[in-house]
């Protein structure tokens, strides 16, 4: 008998990606285990999840020797990375639902309403 499920489907993989992305250096499965704050998954469970992620191309396996395997996430470099991030932000199905941005959420109708209530003394250039 197993107890109640400790994680949602796919949550472990997401959590692993999150942890790996927060680290500069590649990590071994043991090191990853130490980073878990909630219930710590078993070593074998972690290896299974990491192998799956590797197959999906989301994780890189760095094998210095069969007993020294570490993992990292592929990082696009510099400029490309920023461009790809911004285009992904733009592609997010409905940006307003996903992200509460500081700028750019109000449309012409909102602007007209604000302008009618708060008379504008000095427009921006």
């Amino acid at each position: 008998m197993t107890g109640a499920r400790t994680r949602e489907w796919g949550e472990l993989e997401r959590e692993l990606l999150r942890l790996l992305r927060g680290q500069e250096e590649p990590l071994s499965a043991r090191q990853l285990q130490e980073l878990f704050s909630g219930p710590v998954p078993a070593y074998t469970t972690l290896m299974t999840a990491l192998t799956r992620l590797e197959r999906k191309g989301q994780v890189l396996r760095i094998e210095q020797s069969p007993r020294k395997v570490r993992f990292s996430v592929p990082r696009p470099d510099g400029k490309d990375a920023c461009a790809s991030m911004i285009s992904t932000l733009d592609q997010a199905e409905d940006r307003k639902a996903a992200l509460l941005a500081f700028a750019g959420n109000l449309d012409a109708q909102d602007i007209a309403l604000l302008r009618s209530v708060f008379p504008d003394t000095g427009r921006p250039r």
Binding site: G22, P76, S84, L99
Partner: peptide, 10 residues
């Protein structure tokens, strides 16, 4: 997804 992409280049 979008937050994870952002995290990738953080």
């Amino acid at each position: 997804q979008s937050s994870q992409v952002a995290a990738a280049v953080a």
